[in-house]
Write a protein that binds this DNA or RNA. Structure first.
Lengths: 140, 140
DNA sequence: TTGAGTGCAAAGGATTTGCAAGTGG
DNA sequence: CCACTTGCAAATCCTTTGCACTCAA
């Protein structure tokens, strides 16, 4: 559902064809794409869109808090459109697939005050790594 | 205490001046340096050492499991010499400083079986983000 | 001795930037 | 209309690579 575009518009975000396309690409699938993959899909809908614009737009969406940046161990960052639900990532070490999983409690509570060293802690990222079922089958 | 070099030697790691220097730099401070920072400090002890060698060596140490690669949100990876103690990271969103903190329980246990989607989960990374005391003071 | 390790410089991939031209509100 | 966006290409940053040379074991 594209309440993403709604939210952006109501925030006074200048809506251009390029930006709409990027938002739609992110909103469509719930996979976690790299900037380049977003660009590739965007080109399918709007052939003239440039890579720079995709980067700009993704950067803004991250700043606005509508999209999350996920740095995997590999090189290219991935973008997670699911920023409004607290969730964590489960990454396959072999093929790189990312799945969203949902925490049971508040993971922030796991850090006791005496381990905070005076930091004001506002956020936790939790990433599980393992082998996905598909890769487990394919493994030697 | 450089049992790091001990361990490496006993694993049959070919010991060169460059490798020793890199290991010493990592072993010395418990900060989390970028490859370039490691190189800069290594140059202090061994002026001819090249960046490529530092990258090679860091990569090997990671492969050997002696050092951990930490991908922060920024660009350059940081290297964590504290690979033998289970720990998590507390990162200052403003200045990028990384501190090690120590988990109370096993964070792997926090992911229930029905949230594992058939993955064989072997590892969790937990990263807390916030503002460190120094930056809190400096903030407007 | 001799293959593993090194340095250099050039290649590589991901992302950013400068600036002229386009366009949404 | 006009400040904000875009596209393009070149630039930048981090990292890897190819290859001749060196050195630890």
């Amino acid at each position: 559902m594209s309440d993403l575009l709604e939210r952006l518009r109501s925030r006074g975000w200048r809506l251009t064809a390029q930006r709409r396309v990027v938002a739609e690409v992110l909103d469509g699938d719930h996979v976690h794409l790299t900037a380049d993959e977003v660009h590739a899909r965007a080109v399918g809908r709007l052939p003239e869109i440039s890579r720079a614009t995709v980067y700009n737009t993704l950067g803004e969406l991250v700043t606005l808090g509508e999209v999350l940046e996920v740095s995997t161990d590999g090189r290219a960052k991935r973008y997670d459109p699911n920023a409004h639900h607290a969730h964590q990532h489960l990454i396959c070490s072999r093929c790189g697939t990312i799945r969203d999983v949902h925490p049971t409690g508040d993971p922030l509570a796991a850090l006791p005050t005496d381990e905070r060293f005076g930091f004001v802690v506002s956020n936790v990222e939790v990433t599980y790594r393992g082998i996905c079922p598909d890769c487990a089958v394919g493994a030697a």
